[in-house]
Amino acid sequence: MKLSLRQLQIFCAIAQQGSTTSAAIAVSLSQSATSAALNELESALDTRLFDRVGKGLVLNNNGQALLPQARSMLENALQIENSFLPGHAELKTRLRVGCSTTIGNYVLPLILGELRQSAPHLRVDVDMANSMAIARKVADFEIDMGLIEGPCHLPELSAEPWLVDELLIVAGQRHPLALKSQVTLDDLRTAEWLLREPGSGTREEVEQLLLRHLHDLAETRQIGSSEAIKHVLAQGIGISCLSSRVVRDLLTSQDLIELPHALPGLSRRFFLIRHREKFISSGLERFWQSCTQFASQS
């Protein structure tokens, strides 16, 4: 066999760090040894994996194709090592979990609290980003699984429907629509809407739900987090459609008002996602079960 796991580990480190100098620090080698390992790998594969841009290295098409395969092989090798350690070694390994921001702020802390009681040796590192970015990281084996706010469109991923999330149309108490006893479809259509960025699960779901009934939104403004949106709303600026989990506190304080409208109830599903070829360790299975148990109790 021409390839070694060490070469693949170094390749992944260079892809992440962008240079052999930084990668050498990450893998505890000299810069010359790191460069030599990359040269050996490219020679074994008879292809270049990076484009040389100035002093940096950028993955080319060949490198991008290899990266998820290399990460998968390294993951499987790590699981083999762990399976032969004494005791419950798999539950002592770290999981890398990605989640969208609403889940990360309002749902995941509750699951981690339960895990600390039932599986105290399980460590979970959390990566928060929008749903599209999390799905891409799961597909590339950068993280073990994802918890996202909308359906997943990548064929290499398995997606399991999870929580049902109620969506509310809200505005600040000083907004003109907050004073109306009934908000019409035309009111909603012509209002200034505050929406998440493209790629957000919230943005995708809200647009699908609203446009089904309103057909068009006359004016929209993009803001990069639901937390920021709700605080801008509280200043009387615009209206939005957000998770009830996100706005519960400001509804209680009456800084936000749920607008009375004629639309049917709005809701969406959260999803659990993982790569179809992902090795399911006992630690990952335990975390997945905790997520499904949380849904059954909610």
Rank of each mutant, 00 (worst) to 15 (best):
A218N: 11
T190Y: 08
P86Q: 11
K92Y: 08
R123E: 03
L57N: 07
E149Y: 04
L179K: 12
L91W: 07
N39I: 08
Q182P: 02
S72I: 05
N61D: 15
R136F: 06
S296L: 11
L214H: 01
L210R: 00
H213T: 00
P260W: 11
M145D: 04
S22P: 01
S181I: 01
L85T: 05
D144F: 02
P155D: 09
D255G: 06
A178P: 08
T93I: 03
S298R: 09
T20Y: 11
V126H: 12
G104K: 03
G265V: 00
K137L: 00
R48H: 13
L284D: 00
R221E: 15
L95C: 01
L29H: 13
L122K: 05
H275Y: 12
L195Y: 10
L8D: 05
Q64F: 05
Q17H: 07
G283V: 00
A218T: 01
Q79Y: 13
I134N: 03
G172V: 00
S267H: 14
L163C: 06
L147G: 07
Q117T: 07
G54F: 02
F141R: 11
G265A: 04
L115W: 05
I169E: 10
V183K: 01
T47E: 15
G104Q: 10
L272Y: 15
E207F: 10
I237A: 10
N130Y: 00
V247Y: 00
S35P: 03
I273L: 05
S35T: 08
T34A: 12
P176E: 07
R268M: 14
S28L: 13
G98Y: 10
L214R: 00
N60Q: 15
V97C: 02
M1P: 07
L209R: 13
T47G: 07
Q117G: 04
G146L: 06
L41T: 08
E258H: 04
C152V: 13
A44F: 11
E156V: 05
L8V: 06
A129I: 07
Q297A: 10
D125W: 06
C241T: 06
S253T: 14
H215V: 01
L179F: 06
T102R: 09
P151M: 08
E277D: 12
S19E: 01
E149L: 08
F279K: 10
L263I: 01
R52W: 07
Q64Y: 02
A44W: 02
I148H: 09
D249G: 02
C12G: 04
I111C: 09
S4G: 13
I10M: 09
L233Y: 14
R203N: 14
S22A: 14
L147K: 08
Q289Y: 11
A33M: 04
A23T: 08
S32E: 15
G54H: 12
A23W: 02
N130W: 03
S200C: 02
G87E: 10
Q222V: 13
N130E: 13
R274M: 12
S226K: 01
V126L: 12
G146I: 09
L250Q: 14
L8T: 11
P151Y: 11
V107A: 09
Q31R: 12
Q17S: 15
R116D: 10
A133Y: 02
C291V: 15
H121N: 14
V164D: 13
L122G: 06
A70R: 11
Q17L: 08
H153I: 13
P155K: 02
G172D: 14
H215E: 03
R94M: 14
A218F: 06
G238V: 12
S200K: 01
E114K: 11
H275Q: 12
L185I: 09
V107C: 05
F84P: 05
T220Y: 03
R174E: 15
